[in-house]
Design a protein around this nucleic acid. Structure first.
Lengths: 133, 133
DNA sequence: GCCAAATTGATAACCGTTATCATTACGGGT
DNA sequence: ACCCGTAATGATAACGGTTATCAATTTGGC
């Protein structure tokens, strides 16, 4: 059965994910768990993460480097993120306008089942000032 | 030097990219070039692609699988895409509203050097009706 | 307490991308 | 026209991340 994935491990992952406060890579999460004393294996982290993503309790996106980043999602509600590419700070943003625009644009071209990817990467105020690059 | 990247190979890549008509993976592009008779190497394709992307003549995005997909970009202008996840049909879309929204949102939170990822994946009219899967 | 089923975790296989490095082609200078 | 230096090319190896494999452990039911 597919709905049997509830062992303490998954919750551990969810907690870690939740306390990370932002997007984090699967491996980073694994590190964190290990540091926290969990003897959890990397494979399990990936599995838990995949499950959480499927259920909708986690959000995943591809970093520009091709890594998969995950983040705890309070709801299965749709929202977007503003991510500092330097320090990782993540801000959830409302995108009502964009939602509408996306929906309109899609149906405008005869597209259905449209899901949009809308994320903004930048440098937060803190990271911007110091060194440009 | 960095501005010395102009040998026939890059143009070959650009042509291939251009005639692909949609997003294509670096490897797929390499295959295509090879099939077309070019003795081009995979490494060179990656290099050319990176260059084109840098100059702004190619657009790149990460597929959900983590692959990098490239597409010929008419201009270095910023625009987004509506992609059929079934047949690969790609439509360039104007996103003026979104541009503004993104810029506003970013600076609203003190972010600078904001680059946004805005793409819509869906099923085009042709692929939607027939067979669900 | 015993058995069956499922999860776990270490490791190996995979896949795409990037770096390495010898070879080759091109251009300039003489 | 020839020689030489510079840079691009391409085969292959190295890399990093993700997924699959599989034996061992744990869990729950009877």
């Amino acid at each position: 059965m597919a709905v049997k994935r509830n062992t303490w491990q998954r919750e551990a992952v969810r907690e870690a994910l939740d306390s990370s406060g932002g997007f984090i890579s699967a491996q980073g999460l694994h590190q964190g768990l290990r540091d926290a004393g969990s003897p959890i294996g990397l494979a399990t982290v990936y599995r838990a993460l995949a499950d959480l993503a499927t259920v909708g309790e986690a959000d995943s996106l591809q970093s520009p480097d091709g890594e998969s980043l995950y983040r705890a999602c309070a709801s299965s509600g749709h929202h977007h993120h503003l991510i500092c590419r330097s320090c990782g700070l993540t801000v959830e943003i409302e995108a009502t306008e964009v939602e509408q625009w996306a929906r309109r644009t899609a149906s405008d071209h005869g597209f259905t089942e449209a899901q949009h990817i809308v994320d903004i990467f930048g440098l937060c105020a803190a990271c911007a000032a110091p060194q440009p690059k």
